[in-house]
Amino acid sequence: MNLPIELKARISEHISHVRDHLNAFASDEQREILDSIETHIHDALAIRSEEDPTREQLEIIIAEMDPPESYGSNGFGPEQKSKTIPPSQQNESPGRRWGKTNTIILLAVIALIIVAIIHLQAESTADQVIESDQAEAAPYEDRLKPATTKALAADQSPIIGKWTAIDFVSSVSEFNPTHTNWEGELELKSIQFFVDGKTDKPWWTWKDNRLLHSVDQSEAELLIVTVNQSEYLFMEWISGDVLINKEKPQYYVFKRNTYKVDQNITRKSLHE
């Protein structure tokens, strides 16, 4: 079932709201729960809609599901447990508690520094200099906000520009900006979208939110989502499995390049 981008965006929005209430779960559990919710919605849509699903059907399904806050307050998950103060801490002196608080803050700062270092190392491999984003140090407090990628004049489209591939995922909700899913080398390193509908790859052109392949005539969906104020581009990967075996496409994830003038490179180029 191929959903219109509007419905996909609404599903992503709901999933991001649920994600806000999963902080007490481990990252793998969060991912599993979110995957279950996403497939739940698709399965329910498939059962209810003989033809193309409508926005109204989707809203009914979401309304029938538990509200996002239920995932943190149903008494089954660890979130409620973590709110309980263990008896051993209830009688602690203020000084001891202050000492523990300081230790926790110190560990949190160290963790943030480590995440920032890993992030900077990954960024340095890109062929353009990308601005680091401090906001990405906060996992699972992110917000997935689908952005509009069509109904805009071509020169206003948010797709225009150069994007660097950072991950490959089976669904949008699987993406976590602080932990890449794909462990190997990504086949596609980057892609650049020009105003005239061309890309830096001669076989691909783009229009609205679609990427068109001139050889196999396939169309891939392009979806921009905002995660904690950083834009990510999700591009359906139309492989042979998709075209021949009719499997569901997976997604390349790109991060927008923000250009900085690298003085060393510029000088070197001038002298060559």
Binding site: M1, A26, E29, I33, E38, H42, A46, N74, G77, E247
Partner: peptide
Amino acid sequence: YPILSRLRKDGYLKVQVKPSTSGP
């Protein structure tokens, strides 16, 4: 859904991912 995830994590359940015609 959280219980399914916890049971998997505790080793009581295993998971196999299979394609679906209705979505992910």
